Simulated scan of single mutants.
Amino acid sequence: MELLKDDERLDYLLAENLRIIQSPSVFSFSLDAVLLARFVQIPKSKGHIIDLCSGNGVIPLFLSARTKAKITGVELQPRLHDMATRSIAYNKLEAQIDMQLGDVNDAPKTLGIEKYDAVTCNPPYFLANELSEQNANEHYAIARHEIHLTLEQAIEASSRLLKQGGKAAFVHRPGRLLDIVTAMRANRLEPKRIQFVHPKRGKEANTLLIEAIKDGKPDLKILPPLYVYEDNNEYTKEVRALLYGEQQ
């Protein structure tokens, strides 16, 4: 199997000692994926985790360093699915990670209802009609805009996939917080943990991490804020630890 195609490159996931195939013209993961993969609470050994909107498989790869549980990724775009599959093979993780090509909306029917212990999802952030935000690149447009998957659909699919007591974790924009909570509660998901991510101290949060439990009891914890950059524009020690495995 050919490892790299077109303008692809092999990047390091330093903290996990893994490699990942990326492409500037097709898909490259962002800090949001790192944050979500470290935020979610997952079983350490047994169980089954599913990642929706997997892109090039970055979150399954990150999660594989934290657990021995089985991991399934779901990605709609064949090119991204292909990149993810080759990355998994390069890291010799085929026995743990399985990438499925398909629509998140179909995942409960095709992959199993109430089968999973945890769901992660880094969904499209922007509404389909937010044309000013749309990227001309089709791959990025689908990944970033609700063209094929809305927030509500992602949350509904997550709930159907989860076992009772299972955990669903999302990364999104703070402006959608109420939409997320409303949709979660309409689908038997009770928000339990929220963390706001700020570019710098004194700046408004621009990223939201939220985890819910299926059929959980109301008891929401707001975690301490996470700051990405110091005033000198270098990563904070907390983010360096996430990215590079440096000790805090």
Results as ranks from 00 to 15, higher is better:
10 L>W: 07
12 Y>P: 00
16 E>Y: 04
17 N>P: 07
19 R>N: 08
24 P>N: 07
28 S>V: 14
31 L>M: 09
39 F>E: 03
45 S>Q: 14
45 S>W: 02
46 K>S: 15
49 I>S: 08
52 L>H: 09
57 G>Q: 02
65 A>I: 02
66 R>D: 05
69 A>I: 11
70 K>L: 15
73 G>L: 05
78 P>T: 03
82 D>F: 06
82 D>R: 09
83 M>P: 03
86 R>H: 02
86 R>S: 08
87 S>P: 01
93 L>I: 00
95 A>I: 00
96 Q>I: 01
97 I>S: 00
98 D>M: 00
98 D>E: 14
99 M>A: 01
100 Q>E: 06
102 G>D: 03
106 D>F: 11
109 K>S: 13
112 G>F: 09
112 G>I: 11
122 N>E: 14
124 P>I: 10
127 L>Q: 13
133 E>I: 07
133 E>G: 00
134 Q>Y: 08
138 E>Q: 12
147 I>K: 12
166 G>I: 08
172 H>S: 12
178 L>F: 15
180 I>A: 03
184 M>E: 10
186 A>I: 02
188 R>P: 01
193 R>N: 09
194 I>F: 11
197 V>E: 05
198 H>D: 09
203 K>P: 02
205 A>M: 12
211 E>W: 12
213 I>T: 14
216 G>E: 04
219 D>H: 14
220 L>G: 05
221 K>R: 13
223 L>Q: 12
223 L>E: 15
229 Y>A: 04
231 D>M: 00
239 V>L: 05
241 A>Q: 13
